[in-house]
Amino acid sequence: MVETIINIILFTMLVLTALAIVRIDSLFAAVMLSGVFSLLSALLFVTLDAVDVAFTEAAVGAGISTVLMLMTIALTSRTQKKATRSGMVPFVVVAVTGGALFYGTLDMPNLGDPNAPAQLHVAPEYLAGSIKDIDVPNVVTSVLASYRGYDTLGETAVVFTAGIGVLLLLSGLGRRRRKDEEGDA
């Protein structure tokens, strides 16, 4: 009962924040609101007992992303340009996509259903084995680092590749080197 009330409050605030982000013109305010959005999602993850995910959401979503977005608007502009074309076509696209997503959820198992396919595949084996085979109390860590170590290796490689991509786009190493060569010549 209490959990339902908390969920309703959190989801209401989440929707209000999302609407405010859409409506507001100041990009600085929009970035801060997206940080608030992340914190609210982190709270929702806490009510789902997914504290590891909540931790990540709070650190990455509310923390680092907000800082990076602020630095992006420091490099570009602080207010968004007024839309020149009518919003009718985007609205239809969003409405159709949203409707399709809602339709898709009709087939999904209920939230927290113990008989959902995702809970019956390898999860029971991991839950039972985590203490016996690995002896780590935090099942998330044992799944992430041991049972699914190969996936996490891929994830680490993705983070690394993303970093390299941003460096290539932004660091201006090439430009600096060219300037140095011109200076030498």
């Binding site: 990076l68 680490t156 932004l170």
Partner: peptide, 22 residues
């Protein structure tokens, strides 16, 4: 492996910050 993940994430995040702030 967690140490490896931590080192990479630290490096990438600080590198992205340097790239933006530079």
């Amino acid at each position: 492996v967690e140490l490896g993940v931590g080192i990479t994430v630290t490096g990438v995040m600080v590198a992205i910050y340097y790239a933006f702030a530079g």
